[in-house]
């Protein structure tokens, strides 16, 4: 099939960027979206033009590296599908496709469709972990975890950190990503000691990164390649409120007493 692509081209962060239209000829429906871009790039290289830069690595929907707005939808029109797993059979001959990078001030454009998502790493660094230094662990079965908690934690842990939730959210909010990590760890018994400190720290880092706030549009869930549920956002709100109301996770006041 033959397509017309309107692709965002931007040399670097300083460049202002523009849309450029490219034809994509003889595309096989079995190709993935990224393979289609490979073909377009081979054509560009042959003509001596700079190929379109886009992030990708595993190409099997698990690393979370790829991501672009395809016709106004994060990762394209198929639900629960990353761009690398989107196949061209989803499109029709003659389609015009607009391809844009994730748009959020916290995800500055690096080049073309490549953005910088290190803000997510910093949110995790602020508290998205369980402190369990190597070697300090008790036997794996010493802490039974109810299957329902383990399963729900796994649902949340499935997040691949792709950033589609931010890209799709009308407010550019990172709530779904943050909620997924807070919930994954907060649902497990191992995660309890740091539960409230974690939620406070992660939320405050999320805010500091300049993401928007959640007004419950639920676009994030629809765009999420791993179908992370917005219920986790409610859970995040709940945990955050509980932390604030009970003083949970606040640094303990050191009482000066007779030593």
């Amino acid at each position: 099939m033959n397509l017309r692509l309107h692709v965002w081209r931007q040399r670097n962060a300083a460049d202002s960027g523009r849309f450029v239209t490219y034809p994509a000829a003889d595309i096989s429906p079995d190709m993935s979206f990224l393979e289609m871009l490979d073909v377009v790039n081979e054509g560009l290289i042959a003509r001596g033009e700079d190929p379109i830069a886009f992030d990708h690595d595993c190409r099997e929907g698990i690393c979370g590296t790829c991501g672009m707005m395809i016709d106004g939808q994060a990762h394209g029109p198929r639900r629960a599908t990353t761009a690398c797993q989107l196949h061209m059979r989803t499109f029709h001959d003659g389609d015009e496709i607009t391809i844009e990078p994730w748009r959020a001030d916290s995800f500055p454009v690096v080049k073309d469709l490549v953005v910088d998502r290190t803000a997510f790493d910093r949110i995790v660094a602020a508290g998205g972990f369980i402190t369990a230094p190597t070697g300090s662990a008790p036997d794996g079965n010493a802490i039974p975890v109810p299957k329902t908690s383990a399963d729900l934690a796994m649902d949340a842990a499935a997040c691949i950190g792709c950033g589609a939730c931010v890209a799709a959210c009308p407010n550019a909010s990172a709530m779904l990503f943050t909620a997924a990590k807070v919930s994954h760890l907060g649902l497990l018994p191992q995660g309890q000691p740091e539960r409230y400190a974690r939620v406070r720290r992660m939320v405050s880092q999320m805010d500091a990164e300049g993401f928007g706030t959640c007004t419950n549009h639920f676009e994030c869930e629809a765009a999420c390649p791993k179908s992370i549920s917005v219920r986790f956002i409610a859970r995040l709100n709940r945990d955050y409120l509980r932390a604030v109301l009970t003083g949970g996770g606040e640094p303990a006041r050191v009482e000066g007493g007779a030593g």
Binding site: M69, D71, R103, D105, P170, F211, G212, T213, F218, E219
Partner: peptide, 28 residues
Amino acid sequence: LTRTNMDARAVGYRRRRNRESSYASRTM
């Protein structure tokens, strides 16, 4: 909040398709 949210995305999309949000949610 509206300010925060508008600041969070200074450059918008050329094309956008909504899937889950409602008319009500977008016009609050």
